[in-house]
Simulated assay, not measured.
Amino acid sequence: MEVFILTQKKALLIIDYTNDFVADEGALTTGKSGQAIQAQILALMNQFYKNGDYVIFPTDLHHKNDPFHPETKLFPPHNLENTWGRHFYDQVQTWFEAHAKSDQVYAYSKNRYSAFANTNLDNYLRSRKIDSLTLTGVCTDICVLHTAVSAYNLDYQLTVPKDAVASFDPVGHQWALTHFKNTLGAKII
């Protein structure tokens, strides 16, 4: 009798790691804290890719002066379609361009904080038998947080590397890390 061992695939989410959220000139930048996590994100991207796992880029997409989007009233215009601000930051853009055609790499637009809201992410993950997510990117207490809550509610196992998430609000960042661990059962590494 043959025994087959199925290994579950994992996915790394790089949430909103764009020029507008990370570069010094970005419209809604996390600045130095966002820039400081690039090396850890790149290391994780390479590790996941090498292991045959998935590297996913859920990325904010906005249209200038959109009267129907709630963020229009909350934040300055950012991640606008077809702009420099929406490109991935620095070496992450270079990595993405080199690997974009791989079946292991998936980039898509999102229009809400959560990478799951109004997207096909859950279907994409389930069709590939992915049940474990590692969340990276910005902002810890906004888009990463909302994605984590959605993932928790959909029964995904969560890991959040604390050196691969950042925010422009240090208090919110720390609160979110505690929330991931104590309320969502995420593994913080």
Rank of each mutant, 00 (worst) to 15 (best):
D103I: 10
Y108H: 12
G52R: 09
G85I: 02
A39S: 14
T7G: 13
K162T: 04
V149D: 00
Y17K: 05
D103N: 15
I37N: 06
P58T: 09
R112M: 13
I15M: 03
E2K: 09
P58Q: 11
A100T: 11
A100P: 03
K187D: 09
I189P: 12
A117T: 12
A117L: 11
N118Y: 13
A23S: 13
L12I: 09
V3N: 08
K187N: 12
H63F: 14
T183M: 13
V105H: 10
L12E: 05
Y89Q: 03
G172E: 02
Q38L: 13
D131M: 00
S109H: 14
G52Y: 10
G31C: 03
W84E: 14
L61C: 09
I5K: 13
S102I: 10
T94Y: 09
N51F: 02
N118E: 14
H99Q: 14
Q104D: 08
T29I: 06
L158R: 03
Q104M: 10
K181D: 01
I41N: 03
A11Q: 05
H179G: 00
Q93K: 05
S150C: 06
N19L: 13
Q157S: 11
N82Y: 07
Q40M: 11
H69S: 08
V171W: 08
Y108A: 01
K64L: 15
G31Y: 04
T134C: 12
K101Q: 15
D66I: 06
L28T: 01
A164N: 01
D155N: 10
F168P: 00
V165I: 15
Q8A: 12
F116E: 01
K9M: 12
Q38F: 04
K9Q: 12
V160S: 00
I37G: 00
A176S: 07
Y156K: 00
A186T: 03
G172P: 05
F21Y: 13
T7Y: 10
W84L: 04
Q47A: 14
I130D: 03
A115L: 07
D60A: 05
